[in-house]
Simulated assay, not measured.
Amino acid sequence: MGQPLNVGIVGLGAISGAYLSTFERLDAVRLVAVADLDAARAEAVAAEHGARALTVDELTRDPGVDLVVNLTTPAAHAEIALRAIAEGKDVYGEKPLAVTLEDARAVIEAGRAAGVRVGCAPDTVLGTGVQTARKAVDDGAIGEPVAATAVMMTPGHERWHPNPDFYYRSGGGPLLDMGPYYVTTLVTLLGPVVSVVGAASHTRATREIGSGARAGQVIAVDVDTHVTGVLRHASGVLSTLVMSFDSVATQASSIEVHGQTGSLVVPDPNRFDGDVQLHELGGAWQTLPPSAGYRDAARGYGVADLAATPPRAVARANGEVAYHVLDIMTALLAAADTGTTVSVESTCARPAPVPLSDAPVPGPR
Rank of each mutant, 00 (worst) to 15 (best):
D66Y: 01
D66V: 03
D66C: 00
D66G: 07
L67R: 04
L67H: 05
L67W: 01
V68E: 02
V68T: 00
V68W: 04
V68G: 07
V68I: 12
V69G: 02
N70R: 03
N70E: 05
N70V: 12
N70Q: 05
L71R: 01
L71V: 06
L71G: 00
L71T: 01
L71Y: 01
L71W: 00
T72M: 02
T72F: 00
T73H: 09
T73G: 05
T73V: 12
T73W: 04
T73P: 11
P74A: 06
P74K: 09
A75S: 13
A75P: 06
A75K: 14
A75R: 14
A76C: 00
A76D: 10
A76S: 09
H77P: 08
H77Q: 13
A78P: 07
A78R: 00
A78E: 03
E79L: 12
E79T: 15
E79F: 08
E79N: 14
E79M: 11
I80T: 15
I80H: 04
I80M: 15
I80W: 02
A81Q: 14
A81S: 15
L82W: 10
L82T: 11
L82V: 13
R83N: 08
R83A: 12
R83F: 04
A84N: 07
A84L: 03
A84K: 06
A86N: 03
A86E: 12
E87S: 10
E87Y: 04
E87R: 13
E87F: 02
E87N: 13
E87T: 02
E87A: 08
G88F: 07
G88E: 04
G88D: 03
D90S: 09
D90F: 04
V91A: 07
V91W: 09
V91D: 03
Y92K: 00
Y92I: 01
Y92S: 01
G93E: 05
G93I: 03
G93M: 05
G93H: 01
G93F: 02
E94D: 08
E94H: 05
K95T: 00
K95D: 05
K95R: 13
P96E: 11
P96C: 10
P96F: 10
P96S: 10
P96D: 09
L97E: 00
L97M: 07
A98K: 09
A98C: 10
A98Y: 11
V99W: 05
V99D: 05
V99E: 12
V99A: 11
V99Y: 06
V99N: 06
V99T: 15
T100F: 15
T100H: 14
T100G: 15
T100E: 14
L101W: 11
L101Y: 10
L101I: 12
E102D: 14
E102L: 07
D103I: 10
D103F: 10
D103M: 10
D103H: 14
A104H: 11
R105N: 09
A106P: 13
A106T: 14
A106I: 11
V107Y: 08
V107R: 05
V107S: 09
V107D: 08
